[in-house]
């Protein structure tokens, strides 16, 4: 589904060049749940921006569903984000003045989906994400953190994306709601969705099938989780 080949990213500030990614290669298959883990400053956010088509690599290739998108223009990247990707952010990034429903239909607004159709789709994903119907007409800033993140997940799902990218989705939540959100991601994965989750917290990594560990712009570990393997074996 996605494949990155020897990706680098260099930021220039004046004469000083900072190499954030130093040649990263891996591939992710359909239906995988991958956690990318690394300390802050490791380059994991930059990697996520490239994977999420928000940015392009300085060198190297990024194949998204077989197409090399590493040289795409802004508007071409926007098109991929619109049709193929769903984002969940640490700080939710909901429009505060808009209702819950409006927030969730927004990606479909940019995709020119007719009103009735997109509202139906939005209600479906909202219920799926576990949000009560009475909240649909509330303004998004009236919700609790956990509810906000579920709205954000619903928004990420509404365009039926092939890949969901979550950047520290539990970072602003208490551990209990964080658990619920992680559970939601696991459920989505078991429904066949491909998910990439970025975090710096070990305990989250333990829940995933596959963990890619990044440090100083390089992959230091790419493993199928041992504990996960054991759990799988016990199940079997």
């Amino acid at each position: 589904m996605i494949e990155v080949k020897n990706i680098t990213k260099v930021y220039k500030s004046g004469d000083i060049e900072t190499k954030v990614l130093k040649g990263i290669s891996f591939s992710i298959k359909d239906g995988e749940f991958v956690v990318i883990i690394g300390p802050s400053g490791s380059g994991k956010s930059t990697l996520m921006h490239i994977l999420g088509c928000l940015d392009v690599p300085t060198s190297g290739q990024y194949f998204f569903e077989g197409k090399d998108v590493s040289k795409f223009s802004d508007d071409e990247l926007a098109d991929i984000r619109k049709k193929k990707l769903g984002f969940v952010f640490q700080s939710f990034n909901l429009l505060p003045r808009a209702t819950v429903l409006r927030n969730v239909v927004l990606p479909l607004v940019y995709a020119n989906i007719p009103k009735a159709e997109r509202e139906e789709a939005a209600k479906k994903v909202l219920l799926n994400a576990g949000l009560d119907e009475k909240h649909f007409v509330h303004l998004s800033n009236q919700l609790s953190g956990g509810e906000m993140q579920r709205v954000a997940i619903a928004r990420a799902l509404v365009n039926n994306p092939s890949l969901i990218l979550a950047d520290e989705p539990t970072g602003n939540l208490d551990s209990k709601t964080g658990e619920i959100v992680l559970e939601t991601f696991k459920n989505l994965n078991s429904q066949g969705r491909t998910i990439i989750l970025i975090t710096h917290e070990r305990y989250i990594a333990e829940k995933a099938k596959r963990v890619i560990s990044i440090k100083d712009g390089e992959i230091v570990e790419d493993t199928i989780n041992r504990r996960h393997k054991i759990v799988q074996q016990i199940k079997e």
């Binding site: 999420g52 928000l54 802004d74 508007d75 926007a78 098109d79 984000r81 619109k82 049709k83 984002f87 990034n93 429009l95 927004l106 990606p107 940019y110 995709a111 928004r155 365009n159």
Partner: peptide, 16 residues
């Protein structure tokens, strides 16, 4: 600015 960033992330083009 954040709102614009979000709109772009979910697929808004420059023209939008």
């Amino acid at each position: 600015t954040r709102e614009i960033g979000l709109r772009k992330a979910i697929g808004a083009k420059r023209l939008d």
